[in-house]
C-alpha cells in the first residue's frame, strides 16, 4: 500500500459540483489524447462498433458506474466499486489513470499510469470526444457524497487501542501484507475501510463471513478499526 489510495466516496463528493457533460478543461488537447490512447488501444476499443477485448469497451466511460460494461469480466475491485455506486467521474478517472493499482488495488489492468496531469486531461477529453458520456453522470447529482450511515461513522473518533483489540478478529484471515486470496487491509484509508465495512453491515455487499463479522460492529467499533488499520504499514 503506497498511501495513494484516494477514497472514492470523497472523489465523488469533490467532483459532484463540477461534473458536466463537457470536458472540464476547455484547453484540453484531444489530439494529444488520441496519441496517448495508442497505449490503451492494445486492450480497449472506443467509438462506433467498439467491443470488449482484453479490456472493456470505453464508450460512455465518463459518468458510467465503475465496472459495469455488459459482458466484461471485471476484477472484484472494480465490480465492488460499481456495486458501491462509484462512478467514473473525470476526477476519478484522472486519479485512476495516474496510478491504476494505487487507486484501485486489485485491478487487472496492466498499465503503469500517466504522471502528467495535462496528459491525463487530454486523454479524458479524447475519451469523451470519441465515446461520449453516460447518463449516470447527471444522476450523480450534487448530493452524492458519503451516505448518512457512513457519515455517522466518519464522525466518530476511532479509539485506536480498542481497534487494535478488535483487529485480532480480522487478522485470523487478513494478513499484514500481501494476501492473494484474501486481501490485506493494513494501511487502508479510513473512508475506504468504513465504506467497505458499512456495505457489508447493511448487506449491500454480499459475503457470508464479512456480513457476519460486520453485523455486530457498531459505529464505534468500525471507527476504531479504521483508525487502527490506517496506522498499520505493510512493511
Amino acid at each position: 500500500m503506497t498511501g495513494k489510495v484516494i477514497p472514492s466516496c470523497k472523489v465523488a463528493a469533490l467532483v459532484a459540483g463540477t461534473l458536466s457533460l463537457t470536458p472540464f478543461s476547455a484547453s484540453a488537447d484531444a489530439e494529444n489524447g488520441e496519441r496517448l490512447f495508442r497505449a490503451c488501444a492494445a486492450c480497449h476499443q472506443i467509438g462506433e462498433g467498439a467491443i470488449n477485448r482484453i479490456g472493456p469497451q470505453l464508450n460512455g466511460l465518463v459518468g458510467r458506474l465503475i465496472g459495469t460494461v455488459d459482458g466484461y469480466d471485471y476484477s472484484d475491485t472494480l465490480s465492488e466499486a460499481g456495486a458501491d455506486g462509484d462512478v467514473w467521474s473525470e476526477a476519478a478517472l484522472s486519479a485512476f489513470l495516474e496510478d491504476p493499482r494505487g487507486y484501485l488495488p486489485g485491478t487487472s489492468m496492466v498499465f503503469r499510469g500517466i504522471r502528467d496531469e495535462t496528459d491525463r486531461t487530454d486523454l479524458i477529453s479524447y475519451l469523451i470526444q470519441e465515446g461520449g458520456t453516460s447518463e449516470a453522470a447527471a444522476e450523480a447529482g450534487p448530493e452524492s457524497g458519503p451516505s448518512p450511515e457512513i457519515a455517522a461513522i466518519l464522525a466518530v473518533e476511532g479509539d485506536v487501542a480498542y481497534g487494535e483489540y478488535l483487529s485480532s478478529e480480522c487478522t485470523a484471515c487478513h494478513r499484514g501484507a500481501g494476501g492473494e486470496d484474501i486481501p490485506s487491509i493494513a494501511g487502508l484509508a479510513p473512508s475506504v475501510f468504513i465504506a467497505g465495512l458499512s456495505a457489508y453491515r447493511t448487506g449491500e455487499r454480499e459475503h457470508p463471513v464479512m456480513n457476519m463479522v460486520a453485523s455486530r460492529l457498531g459505529d464505534e467499533e468500525i471507527a476504531a478499526l479504521a483508525a487502527y488499520f490506517e496506522a498499520q504499514t505493510t512493511e
Binding site: 485470523a172 494478513r175 494476501g179 492473494e180 486470496d181 484474501i182 457470508p208 457476519m212
Partner: peptide, 30 residues
C-alpha cells in the same frame, strides 16, 4: 451465523476454496 448452501455456483465454491487458502496463510501468520 451462516452456512454454505446446496446448489451454489461453481464460481462461489471455487471462491470459497481460494478464501480458505487465504485464511490458512493468515491464521498461521497470526
Amino acid at each position: 451465523g451462516f452456512v454454505s448452501e446446496v446448489g451454489e455456483t461453481d464460481e462461489v465454491r471455487a471462491e470459497t476454496y481460494r478464501e480458505s487458502i487465504g485464511w490458512y496463510d493468515a491464521i498461521t501468520e497470526d
